[in-house]
Design a protein around this nucleic acid. Sequence first.
DNA 1: TTGACACGAAACCAAAAGGTGTTATATATT
DNA 2: AATATATAACACCTTTTGGTTTCGTGTCAA
Lengths: 110, 110
Amino acid sequence: MSASAQKHDVFQAIADPTRRDILKLLAEKELSILEITGHFPMSRTAIAKHLHILSEAKLVNGRKIGREKRFRIQPDSLDELKQWLSYFEQFWHNKLSILKHIVENQNEKD
Amino acid sequence: MSASAQKHDVFQAIADPTRRDILKLLAEKELSILEITGHFPMSRTAIAKHLHILSEAKLVNGRKIGREKRFRIQPDSLDELKQWLSYFEQFWHNKLSILKHIVENQNEKD
DNA sequence: TTGACACGAAACCAAAAGGTGTTATATATT
DNA sequence: AATATATAACACCTTTTGGTTTCGTGTCAA
């Protein structure tokens, strides 16, 4: 077993809507577990678990400050998702506009 | 219950590695259930379930041809994922522009 | 030092996910 | 018409997920 025996990857991490909401929260600013919990109708423990999963997926990281643990977003891993997406992007762009590629040769604008 | 009582969304659909592999297969060409099953170490029934979930998420669609059901990719829904991603993109581009060496490694060969 | 506070860890639970096999039904082939 | 085939529809099993509660520990403040 390699050292990267990672139980949760990015895809699983973002599968849960609560975790996606947590990410949105942390995108704005660093927050403690209790502060995050305040935004959701569930227990602190549940949120802590979600944060653990997000942490495993390298989407957030937490540092202890006093008796608090403050989490912030670490969006690097989303790049893996982006690359995965880009693989399919060519397909839906190509397929949806077979004629279009004649017109716009390489308009990498959007 | 509204008509859009959709059990699986895109995020859940792509959370499973088997389903991501199925998407890659279908990206290349349309395939029947049996053909898809041939690529995986599991039963046809299991694959059919995965296809059902992918279908719910509007990532694939199947049409009956004779006694076969052939599935093809329907990548429109990935756009939702792309939009979700783009929200965070600004963060990691702004915040982590210093760590650009990661991005610069991007050799889109495979 | 005492007590409130923020957190971690563990035990537990219900429901969903992911798989199996069997049976039924419609379609092709002969 | 008979048979083989591709899939759908079930029933079932096991593991994972997402939540709970309880208890213990370190930290801050009075």
